[in-house]
Design a binder for these strands. Sequence first.
RNA 1: GCGGUCAUAGCUCAGUUGGUUAGAGCACAAGAUUGUGAUUCUUGGGGUCGCGGGUUCGAGUCCCGUUGACCGCCCCA
Length: 437
Amino acid sequence: MAGFQSLPGFRDFYPEEFSRRQHIFRVWRQAASAFGFQEYDAPVLEPLELYKTKSGDEIEAQLFSFTDKGGREVALRPEMTPTVCRMVGAKAGALKRPIKWFSVAEFYRYERAQKGRLRAFNQFNADIFGEAGPEAEIELIALLIQCLSSFGLTKDDFYIRLSDRDLWFFYLEALGFTDAQSRGILVAIDRFEKMGEDAFKGYVEMHGEVAAEMKDKVLAFLQIKSLADLEAVLAPFKSDKLATRLSDWRKVLSGLSAMKLSEFVAVDFGVVRGLAYYTGFVFEAFDRKGDLRALAGGGRYNDLVKKLGGPDLPAVGFAIGDVTTGLLLEQRGLTPHFVTAPDIYAVIGGEAERNAAFADIQALRASGWRVEYPFKELAFGKQFKAAAESGAKLALIYGGDELAKGVVKIRDMTDRSEREVARDQVLASVRDFLSGH
RNA sequence: GCGGUCAUAGCUCAGUUGGUUAGAGCACAAGAUUGUGAUUCUUGGGGUCGCGGGUUCGAGUCCCGUUGACCGCCCCA
């Protein structure tokens, strides 16, 4: 069609797509509520500086940013984390701990649209502030699993890869890497799955060759599949810090195991997550078939609230996107068709009967029943067909014959039985019938 | 930001080496049917063939540009 199109990477939500999106939002909200998280929202437009402070100046290239009429540098939010850190930071002293918050919101990123990645998308964000211990990770990972399994997805559909940036840095330092070198190694690790040995090219350019024996030790960390593997690889190193980290790992894994969620979780140090503000556990959810982008990602970011001007407040959080989730649900046939069927369809004999029908229709609607009727005069046959197609459970028949007798005919659309009720009994009869089903 | 593929009705697509007023199925609407249900039959609306230019007597078809979608790279908070 000629004329206007939506902007690249932006979607129109026709009623069918809208109902699919609502289903996703409903499931997320229900899961969060079951876990005792409280919903919040925030402005779509934020100061550009908020994102530059968190992610560096380069981030601007990926943002919908502009100068507003008051000369302010602003950006459409590309994520929720800086905003929620600002909100929590500003009132941290007054908020009861632990602070467990979630949001469902739309975000905007100026990137090339691809499958599973658009310029406008929705995310569920859940964060816990004020809890430094691994209990927060247990809570969030369990919530993440609930947010996905509530759709009907199982351990055969998705899983969560659990990793730890803190342990990576500990291990690399113990191997003799400097801090800068360690960061370079982590970039290589992030790419290793996709690129193999080539992933180290960038590191070699910056820091020089990695000794073969050293590289083997780095790659050994990637082979870790369990807590036992982890303890074995780290056995040569002893420190209080390491003992604490391993104790946290035991708590997280045994906690999730007690929740019977172990089958959803894989120890996998291949996950390091892009930007470097994560300070401990990091995790990502993927579909098992592995042909989609990450479904969700998160981790601990203990320094961020302070960096954005708030108090020193530990934090963990994750986000799930609606685009990849929607694709996965579609693949698995888990997108229910929502028919917004009326409760009642009013069949109206003609213009003479219309006003009598209107009186009841309005009263029924005011009581909360969903009632439909034809706008134009239609043959009875057509109206019954329309009633059947609408999915209504009941038809109310306002014909000349009925109204002359002071009654309305009620037809049960499922078994096609009919009976007559007095005009002033319509509301009561409908209530009896529909509340019994 | 860089490469590749594609674009015909609301949807899925057909359209011959360039040749008359561009087609089908589905969907939608009306009628057959002025008091009772998904079938059937008939009919109808809907296209500047993504957009703009060029070649040609003639372009949905060939060429260039552009916009968008999809795939890959960069990035992925």
